[in-house]
């Protein structure tokens, strides 16, 4: 069977076919035969050419976290990746910019008011998480369109904090 996965935003294809003595793995030009054994719900052993590779795997909704010999991969099913933008980044749309919380935490200060003009890199708000203060900065020059939160509010990651309108 052919599988498609997203790894680091890149689509990867792999073919895994069951056959006698294990599985045939075809990836790009390469083709190998592996005996795959499940050791525990989180551990697989892939025996390839007389060497066992231990693979640790954990699942969370549409993601699989996979660890092999010091490297971690987050493997996602395509089409099911989160539609929302990444935490802490902004979503720009027609000159509007949504500033979101980079992590779950508490809003401890809002430095701006609606309609205020802001410079690039100006600190808009401070969100505290795990006892550290994190400055939420403006990445553009513009105006504060709307403020969605108030001081003392607990926010989740990706929660919209402030909407900016960029200067034309």
């Amino acid at each position: 069977m052919e599988f498609e996965f997203l790894v680091d935003k890149e689509l990867r294809k792999i073919v895994l076919e069951k056959k006698e003595g294990g599985y045939c793995i075809a990836y790009g030009e390469n083709q190998v035969t592996a005996d795959i054994q499940s050791i525990s719900p989180h551990v697989l052993s892939l025996m390839i050419d007389g060497r066992s590779y231990l693979v640790y795997i954990a699942r969370d909704k549409e993601k699989k976290y996979i660890f092999i010999d010091g490297q971690q991969f987050i493997v996602q099913e395509p089409g099911r990746e989160t539609k929302s933008f990444h935490a802490g980044e902004e979503k720009a749309q027609e000159g509007k910019l949504l500033i979101t919380a980079p992590m779950p935490g508490k809003v401890i200060k809002i430095h701006v008011v609606e309609q205020q003009e802001v410079r690039k890199n100006q600190t808009l708000a401070i969100v505290e998480a795990m006892k550290m203060e994190n400055d939420i900065k403006s990445s553009v020059e513009g105006f504060v369109k709307k403020i969605f939160v108030s001081v003392g509010e607990l926010v989740d990651s990706e929660k919209p904090l402030i909407e900016l309108e960029t200067k034309k």
Binding site: M1, F3, R12, I14, L16, S38, R59, I66, V75
Partner: peptide, 30 residues
């Protein structure tokens, strides 16, 4: 390692689920 990770993910999609049930993972294409 990426190849191994993908193979493991594919194997996992075929074989495992929360209660050993077969779950569909990845985009399977016959």
């Amino acid at each position: 390692k990426l190849r191994l990770a993908l193979a493991a993910a594919a194997f996992d999609s075929i074989n495992s689920g929360p209660s050993g049930k077969k779950v569909v993972g990845g985009t399977q294409k016959a």
